[in-house]
């Protein structure tokens, strides 16, 4: 049984149908990427999974529980953490407070402490800036903070929305390296990216989303060689 199974999900913004029956699965231990152009519904898919949007129909099952009928703030407890688009760090709180909030629902102090050490090891920059106000961090540091904060929830499934957005290529490399490392340590990742090139390099499988529907579902390897993907998303003729 997959860790996450999204089946025939329709999500609306008012009367506009943003997801027209999206189905996808994420197996335990995988990195799955969702690529697609602007407005294809990538972010909407993630926001529907993590509960910020409710689908009008369809099911989202995580380990037997239907997330579509669970409140957003209860979904974290089931093991889903999201790094939102544009990072969404709490800019007036300190780095330490942001990380604490990541573990907001947890009570296992010892394990929280270990996760904090793990996050600070993954992102030594955050350790240097531990007491600093998050709003004073650079874009790359904020992305590290948002990722670290999500890891503080000790998620089984990490949802990442455009981690490369607005970052210098060298920082993108390092964020993706970290994701690979996080995945090696057992966290399953569903990654939304415009930077299909980077995403397909670290992913096991990928889905191509077009105007609210899954257009292609293949292994990352195959997608990298798919003529349509190469032309439209990788920009190679």
């Amino acid at each position: 049984m997959p860790l996450l199974e999204v089946r025939d999900v329709h999500t609306y913004y008012g009367n506009i149908e943003a997801l027209k029956g999206v189905s996808l699965t994420v197996e335990k231990g995988e990195i799955v990427t969702l690529i697609g152009g602007n407005g294809a519904g990538k972010t909407t898919t993630l926001r529907t999974i993590c509960g910020l949007l409710k689908p009008r129909s369809g099911t989202i099952v995580l380990d037997g529980k239907d997330l579509a009928r669970t409140k957003a703030h209860e979904i974290v407890n089931l093991g889903v953490a999201m790094v939102p688009e544009g990072r969404g760090v709490f800019s007036r709180l300190t780095v330490a407070e942001n990380l604490d909030l990541g573990a907001y629902t947890r009570t296992d102090r010892g394990a929280i402490r270990r996760d904090l050490e793990m996050v600070l090891r993954l992102f030594p920059r955050l350790k240097e800036r531990f007491r600093q106000i998050a709003g004073t961090l650079s874009g790359g540091e904020q992305q590290m903070l948002a990722t670290g904060r999500a890891l503080m929830a000790h998620p089984r499934l990490l949802l990442m929305d455009e981690p490369s957005m607005g970052l210098a290529p060298i920082l993108v490399e390092s964020i993706f390296d970290t994701l690979r490392e996080v995945n090696r340590e057992g966290t399953t990742i569903l990654l939304v990216e415009q930077n299909a090139h980077m995403a397909l390099q670290i992913a096991n499988r990928g889905y191509v989303l077009q105007t609210g529907q899954i257009a292609l579902a293949k292994s990352a390897e195959e997608l990298q060689h798919d003529p349509m993907v190469r032309k439209v998303y990788l920009g190679i003729d």
């Binding site: 703030h73 999201m82 969404g88 007036r92 709180l93 909030l101 629902t105 904060r149």
Partner: peptide, 16 residues
Amino acid sequence: RAVSENKQTAALMGID
């Protein structure tokens, strides 16, 4: 303070 800054992100942290 988190809710004051961004309600949606606060909900993502598991804050009711």
